[in-house]
Design a protein around this nucleic acid. Sequence first.
DNA 1: ACGGACATGTAATAAGTTACATGATTAT
DNA 2: ATAATCATGTAACTTATTACATGTCCGT
Lengths: 169, 169
Amino acid sequence: MDLNATAASLLGFLHDGPMSGWDLMATARARIGNFWSLTQSQVYRELAALQRAGLVSAGTPGARERRPYELTPAGRQAFAEWLSRDPGDAQIRYPLLLAIALGRYLAPGQLAAVIAEHRQRHEQQLASYLAARESVAGDPYAAATLDFGIRHETAVLDWFAALPAQISG
Amino acid sequence: MDLNATAASLLGFLHDGPMSGWDLMATARARIGNFWSLTQSQVYRELAALQRAGLVSAGTPGARERRPYELTPAGRQAFAEWLSRDPGDAQIRYPLLLAIALGRYLAPGQLAAVIAEHRQRHEQQLASYLAARESVAGDPYAAATLDFGIRHETAVLDWFAALPAQISG
DNA sequence: ACGGACATGTAATAAGTTACATGATTAT
DNA sequence: ATAATCATGTAACTTATTACATGTCCGT
């Protein structure tokens, strides 16, 4: 059974006990949402696939059509395996880099406004990460991923600052 | 006509003159491959779509089934428009961050090997970027994207170095 | 003659996004 | 009563990856 990273994260969260798709969505958004996007559709699709594969089992339905899923022993093992098989490389997909790489085909100054706006967004993102530091003080794992975000955003802002005027206007 | 970033990059490259899918693939790999993955299949698919949309036109076939595509005026405009409509946010998708975020469900030390390996990869990537600096000396746009890579990798390595022993082993 | 680079594409699948449909329960 | 939230899911589409099929031309 080879899991994708998104499915594996769901298995991970289910270590804390049975959860519904809704719960998992909320948990994922809170715990990995800063660096791993996922949608409701995906969650329900992956849950169905995990169930077919026997890695989770549906528990007794609760209120409001609530359908809690429980980690099976096979699921627990698949999760551990996913981690030992090395996780893939980072992929950054940043359209702004494309725009800059193609900058020579543009009228001078055309990039400046776009760059300025992105710079602001990264400033806000960094501020938001910095503000979140206290809230992860007790959890070294959450602190580590947050620290990644802080360092990344800081590096991006330094990069913006170092861009030649020819590009950033 | 709303382009996706991959298609837009092809239009960008075609500013330098007609190119075949093969040429575009090689150009893209060389010029944006460090931060934008794309495959042959995509290139041919997007070219076909661009042609249907009238943004490129197929020139006279050359040797070996070679089918050069030329930028049309509409394509030139669509490219300029794509750039003015702001490029989307950066998305980082790094499974190792997931693994760390889920670290509390693992036996202690299980992450260490994975982390060590990734650290090496990033060291190599940084070295490769640093070695490439001379080759972009004349091109400020290429230099800017390379600088992004260097700063990013440096930040990631700093982050690795700062990870608590509890996580990195 | 033959291996390697050139060159185009299809097929199958996976992964991700957006929008929509449906309904239950809780709080005001 | 009614709005907000909880809850599940489908449909349609886009984007991306891997593998395969097919054939050409160049250099040695």
